[in-house]
Design a protein around this nucleic acid. Structure first.
Lengths: 163, 163
DNA sequence: CTAAAACCCATACTTTGGTATTAAAAAAGG
DNA sequence: CCTTTTTTAATACCAAAGTATGGGTTTTAG
């Protein structure tokens, strides 16, 4: 017979009288405490009132703060590396292009160069004279700090200026 | 004269006397108010005390809340694209090179071309004559089916023949 | 408006690149 | 050994690329 409930029932039955007297004693003690408390309340009602007010308004303050305060935002910047395949989408490094002061036309010609077009073919494709293309080339080479068109193309590719 | 400060200065100068009398009247009124306030404080010191306590503990609550509240962490994930310039390891397409019948020397010259060297520079770097480089170039262009060195380089890169 | 860019074009000249052809060593492979 | 491929090389000529300079027209920004 190891059922705990049964064990307790057994104990209660055994010590019925002892328990009864203890219980009545306990009740008496509680009554006494209650009277003392009333006395205390009566004599210190002001302090208790103040304490209650304090507690209440502390709560109000907490509630207010929590309700109205902007949530502290902790911004965690996660750098996620995105591997961009060579063939995929290409985004030119606009900042670098601006820094090198490459003009729209120069960039256009650079791109056509990279396609393997000759100066004459470039001239034809953008409807300007060969001379103009050559002038653009000169400026381009100076800005990119290279000597030959092939170097310009390779450097531009390396710097993400052209695909 | 649209400067607001100047406009105000002008008005002050115009109505100096009026302003002075108004000011003194204002001061008198303030004094009266102050006396009334003292009376109120005398008669309602309890309520004021309570109010003060309330205010104080509201402040305490706010302070507590702000101090102890865990910051709401808002994680903002910023994807920063890092463009990886391509694998460090390059493996040439041996099969294609064999198929195109590109010789060792031709490949070497192709690589130097891609670096932006002139024919003369290539000749110097591999200790052969300019003529030799040109002959290699011719064969190279035929094998790669291109017309210009720049096209050769671009095509070779595209076909994974050179890095 | 005006100054600074960006753009366009030309001429003259030099250098580099590419084509064609020929040819001879050297290496590779059967 | 002999054949094929590779590598080297030369000459001559033409085409393309690049340099230097100067002068125009648009656009653009203060």
């Amino acid at each position: 017979m190891h059922n705990p409930v049964a064990v307790i029932k057994n104990l209660l039955a055994k010590h019925k009288s002892t328990l009864l007297s203890s219980a009545s004693l306990g009740v008496l003690l509680l009554l006494l405490k209650w009277m003392v408390l009333r006395y205390v309340i009566y004599n210190h009602s002001f302090e208790i009132y103040i304490g209650f007010i304090a507690l209440l308004f502390t709560g109000l303050g907490i509630w207010l703060a929590l309700k109205l305060s902007k949530p502290k935002i902790k911004t965690v910047v996660v750098q996620k590396e995105v591997y961009v395949p060579r063939d995929g989408s290409f985004v030119a490094d606009a900042a670098l292009i601006a820094q090198l002061q490459l003009s729209k036309r120069e960039l256009e010609i650079l791109g056509l160069m990279a396609l393997g077009l000759s100066n004459e073919e470039i001239a034809a494709s953008i409807f300007v004279s060969l001379s103009t293309v050559k002038t653009h080339n000169q400026n381009l080479f100076v800005k990119l700090d290279v000597k030959r068109r092939i170097q310009a193309v390779e450097k531009a590719k390396r710097l993400n200026i052209i695909p």
